[in-house]
């Protein structure tokens, strides 16, 4: 996965709770055998109508969000199916950061494995940023090393928590399997015990 230290990007606000992975990427697009190419299907049934035409009322379709790379959503983001196609689709579409008051466990892990930073932030702050991003173009700066989110417009800095080992992996873009295989002796010893 690609290492990520800092990221500055446009915020796309998705003011919905319990956004499940069936919505992030519907099942008819899970049949590919590659990891790439899923971005076009992101939020498919919210973005497109039954004839495949863009729904003008779904905000992500609006030109002002074309370059969005930070997604902010409501509680329990990524619940439901374990499909890693969900973070693949987000990444492929251009999202590198997802901010929400809470995440479903499997999605949180899947995001981390793909170099997406999932940031848990209190509900009130999330609400505020969603509001800002709905009103006008709104950019945030993520400093993973310093664990800060910088809102340059309002000149504010907000700290965020992320487990140290996840942070380290994201910062370095490490291949987790290679790291684990360094523990080969211990795995083999366990198997023999």
């Amino acid at each position: 996965m690609e290492a990520i230290q800092k990221h500055t990007g446009l915020v796309y606000p998705l003011n919905r709770t319990n956004v499940d992975t069936d919505q992030i990427i519907p099942k008819q697009f899970l049949k590919r055998i590659e990891r790439t190419g899923f971005g076009q299907f992101l939020f498919y049934h919210w973005r497109f109508d039954d004839e495949g035409k863009k729904r003008p009322d779904f905000a992500l379709n609006k030109a002002e969000y074309n370059d969005a790379s930070i997604l902010i959503a409501g509680e329990n983001f990524g619940c439901g199916s374990s499909r890693e196609h969900a973070p693949w689709a987000l990444l492929d579409y251009g999202f590198r950061v997802v901010i929400a008051p809470s995440f479903a466990d499997i999605f949180y892990n899947n995001a981390l494995k793909n170099g997406i930073i999932p940031i848990q932030m209190d509900k009130q702050q999330v609400g505020q940023w969603i509001q800002q991003a709905v009103e006008s173009k709104f950019t945030l700066e993520i400093d993973l090393e310093g664990q800060q989110i910088i809102d340059t417009k309002n000149n504010e800095e907000v700290h965020f928590d992320i487990p140290a080992y996840h942070k380290e992996k994201l910062l370095n873009g490490w291949d987790e399997i290679a790291l684990t295989l360094q523990l080969e002796n211990e795995i083999a010893a366990y198997e023999q015990a």
Binding site: S82, R83, E84, N109, N110, K113, N114, E176, I177, T180
Partner: peptide, 18 residues
Amino acid sequence: FGIGTSEVEHVLATQTIW
């Protein structure tokens, strides 16, 4: 418990999971 595809790869390769 359920896992994502990267974890499937990890388990296939190492028979372990973090």
